[in-house]
Design a protein around this nucleic acid. Sequence first.
DNA 1: ACACTGTGAGAGACCGCTCTCTCAATTGCC
DNA 2: GGCAATTGAGAGAGCGGTCTCTCACAGTGT
Lengths: 382, 382
Amino acid sequence: MPDVRERSQGGGPSGSRPTVDDVAAAAGVSRATAARVLGDYGRVGQATASRVRQHAEALGYTPNRLAQGMAAGRTQTLGFVSADMQNPFFGQSMRGFTDVARGQGYDVIIANSEEEPQLERRAVQTLLERRVDGMLVAPTELRQARHLEDAVASGVPIVLADRSVRGLAADCVLIDNVGAARDAVAHLIERGHERIGVATTHLTGLDLVSELDEAALDSWHAPTTVSRAVGYVQALRAAGLPVVPELIALAPYRRPDAYAAVRAMLALPEPPTAVLAVDDLLTLAAFEAVQDSGLRFPGECTVLGFDDLDWTTIVRPRLTVVAQPAYDIGATAARRLLARIDGDTSPAQTLLLDTKLVERESTAARRPRPRQARATTGAEPA
Amino acid sequence: MPDVRERSQGGGPSGSRPTVDDVAAAAGVSRATAARVLGDYGRVGQATASRVRQHAEALGYTPNRLAQGMAAGRTQTLGFVSADMQNPFFGQSMRGFTDVARGQGYDVIIANSEEEPQLERRAVQTLLERRVDGMLVAPTELRQARHLEDAVASGVPIVLADRSVRGLAADCVLIDNVGAARDAVAHLIERGHERIGVATTHLTGLDLVSELDEAALDSWHAPTTVSRAVGYVQALRAAGLPVVPELIALAPYRRPDAYAAVRAMLALPEPPTAVLAVDDLLTLAAFEAVQDSGLRFPGECTVLGFDDLDWTTIVRPRLTVVAQPAYDIGATAARRLLARIDGDTSPAQTLLLDTKLVERESTAARRPRPRQARATTGAEPA
DNA sequence: ACACTGTGAGAGACCGCTCTCTCAATTGCC
DNA sequence: GGCAATTGAGAGAGCGGTCTCTCACAGTGT
């Protein structure tokens, strides 16, 4: 029977934690045997095993994951690189990811890139140095990513989330951004809206409406806000409505800028009767802009947002939003990663998750006829 | 001159990354020398150093942090255990923490406890196994925490954040919750409010107002919502105002419950003219409740919240809130930790950071006299 | 009685680094 | 010019595990 407080006795200085050797010595077995018991591998007799365990307990043995990782060649650790952990979307994805990972005995190291390619590269590099068994990346650069290609080439499983990188042979989990925005706009059109604005972000080199078509060709590898703007255009076209450049509020991705852009749009002689905001920050800005514009909300102008955040239900009218399965994106990505780690060598696959249009008061009422008569805007196509 | 694409040549299978030995062999030096260059320690000649670096580059050498950690005895890693990474407060703290850590060459492993003692213990254990050089913990159990005591005893620097554990010899960084709430209520009283409600959470075993006094004695080791409730009581007493049990909305920590509790309070024959909500979730609930109550907002009843979140400025009137220096809490905690790691052995210290009352429209106007006459409630003390 | 199999446990080779020791070579100084 | 001091580089011992090999020892079948 081992002493209950063996730890205060022999061994090393109080600073150094007991090792397998210490436990082995205390239990009177070889290091190999103690390691087998503690590491839960190999064959060990019942009696010996429980004796080792008792002594380990008494000594306060804590396995050293570094050593385990070194020796075993795997670390039971996954990496998670996202743009911004403060963003609720990533917060939820992270949650889904860690839940699944932890369920399989994996820990997660989190790093964020702040949407900076530089930081993303450092984060990925660091995770590689830590020898994670796989990692999720919400990539910042979508057209090329040498660091990710190198990582994939080196054999570390990688799964992309939320965004996809062109030509990268890695699994990818995201939503159909184009489709989600298209459906949202279709919903507005159904409600009688014909003059619909959109709040999106500046697209580098793609600022003009005409170029959205080009973006459409490659919309999976475009920032989510751009893909969604593409969906907006497609929905209008499908309904035979004109795409009006003034109704596209383009601004740098900051709340004041987005606010100003929407305010400007609402000050047009003929303002939109609804605004689609393509992500949470833009929804915040658009909501505030409409509220401050003097237009009756939702009577004269309403908002349809992205991301189902807390505050969208405390405002009146409650906001209709496109809800993303953030948690599921993380969870699915984790499952994909674990499958790869387990040896799945099938070709890289892209998983599209469904969004949900959460209908609330802001779009509940059918729109009245436009307040002012307008020249016919092109004959509707058959 | 080393070949630019040395990596495709000899060495190991493509899966195994090159090691110092590989680099050393390529550069024609001993392992020790290559390690010195790559690990940036010891003395090495200029020429040799750059030759090694060239070959390392060409081979695509990636240091193995596990091995480094093993050999060096420190991992250049800090741990961060918080209740809920989705909460903006922790998100910001985390940001402050990682910014400071990264600045000193440390990476951060994040774990969250979901406010579950069980999970917290696991998280701490895991970080210990990973041999972090120090960790921040936002503790869940405030009265006792064996696992933290053990960790402290084993010599790993620990810093508590946001909450303090009674009797634990560890540095602690938090705000003066009692004072912050007291000041907030004082601000309301200054504005002419005399009937002030508070939305807080169920206190296990401390549900009665009279017992808040007891909590006050130990308020640093109480949940933040409780400490703030104590501050509320103190402010009322200091102003000679009665503490009315019906004006203390106590509910489980969930939005619907908090909402219901505040609604009930507002339905009293004589409802409060202002409600202090002691954290972000409660602020959300209180705001919604007041808005739905039928009382004019802020004319008849207003809200003063905690935590300066995005949405508090999009609602009208904009909300006056107590802003916490969340980022600074994380940053300060990280600095404290790094100091300890550097050998600071001074006694454990508790750092109190300042909160800021952000005055906005919701409390801008001076209150009109109460709508209905009321019996004098006790003579004011001199 | 003898080789045959299965099982428990020890030996020892790594894993990829850091760091101390040691030693040869270069430099400085009187 | 001889000797100590400085500098560059190699050897080798860990760090704390995993895992393969090997071997002693029972329990079988013939």
